[in-house]
Design a protein around this nucleic acid. Structure first.
Length: 296
DNA sequence: ACGCGAATAT
DNA sequence: AATATTCGCG
């Protein structure tokens, strides 16, 4: 089984078209969005969990063989590229809510209690680098809808969270903490007083790369994620599967400051059930997921 | 002014 | 469908 994975990868690599072939004639090498999406920025803004662009298809830079482990090539727009797009007016790439991210989200909400579970707080509790309040707010809104939908539907046959329609696939991936399905109760009770949120939004320091799921805006062209950086995420064979984000709290050099706790579950890297790069086909959109799909 | 949440937009 | 952005309201 494992061979399949390494196999596809090899094949994939071989099939990589030459860089020239890739870009028909459109636009620059690295989308500005990509740049900022990852870490190329100067001031003190924007970080990025798992984000996606919307516009141009992801440019490829890793031709073949060994990906750059560490830094990636700088966007050289010199020769052919030409149209260096306005580096300004850059918009933040769309955040992609991976199951993991969502899990974190749910845990946060769970521990906060419905009452205190408002975007800002949730965001803080999650302490995911680059996550904005609006990101959370937006997700929260949808999540609430999901919960409502669920309550109405939960009666009857054994359908709770194991076969929900595609509509809620993301949400289905994390166990809804019971008491969610009915508001009314803050936390207290049997739910821990967890996490003092010492870390808060501390955004300076360096950046972390991200991007775990990439979406291609178009069909069929050979798009590939920038494995240059995230390559090794695809090999969780050791079970030590960690995401670049979900992690913005990793450093607390020195002593006393312990940023925060892990919310709820202690990172359960159970066996990779299926690490298939999930090809979600919808319309003209292919989603490449590097994460375990289903549950963790 | 803050920031939540519903509505609306992409 | 999934996220983002806008907007009215406490």
């Amino acid at each position: 089984m494992r061979e399949d994975e390494s196999n596809w990868f090899s094949k994939w690599e071989e099939q990589l078209p030459s860089p020239e072939d890739l870009m028909p004639l459109t636009q620059t090498l690295i989308t500005p969005d990509l740049a900022i999406a990852f870490d190329i920025r100067s001031p003190h803004n924007l970080h990025s969990p798992s984000l996606q662009h919307h516009q141009q298809p992801p440019p490829i830079s890793t031709p073949s063989s060994q990906p750059n482990s560490g830094e990636f090539d700088s966007p050289e727009l010199g020769g052919g590229g030409a149209g260096d797009e306005p580096a300004r007016t850059l918009k933040r790439p769309r955040l992609v809510w991976t199951p993991q991210l969502h899990k974190r989200f749910v845990d946060a909400v769970a521990h906060l209690g419905i009452k205190n579970a408002v975007p800002k707080t949730i965001m803080q509790l999650m302490s995911v680098d680059g996550l904005t309040r609006e990101n959370v707010a937006s997700h929260l809104q949808k999540y609430r809808l999901y919960l409502k939908r669920m309550q109405g539907l939960s009666s009857g046959s054994g359908n709770g969270s194991g076969g929900d329609p595609a509509t809620d696939h993301l949400f289905a991936s994390s166990p809804v903490p019971a008491h969610f399905l009915h508001q009314g109760r803050p936390n207290s009770d049997h739910y821990l007083p967890y996490v003092p949120v010492a870390a808060l939004q501390q955004q300076h320091h360096h950046q972390q790369m991200a991007a775990a799921a990439v979406v291609a805006g178009h069909h069929h062209p050979q798009l590939q994620p920038r494995y240059g950086q995230i390559g090794h995420f695809g090999s969780p064979r050791n079970g030590q599967f960690d995401h670049p984000f979900l992690n913005r709290q990793s450093h607390s050099h020195s002593h006393s400051q312990q940023p925060i706790h892990r919310v709820g579950t202690p990172i359960h890297n159970s066996v990779p059930s299926s690490y298939v790069d999930d090809l979600e086909s919808a319309n003209g959109r292919k989603v490449l997921t590097l994460f375990p799909t289903g549950d963790d």
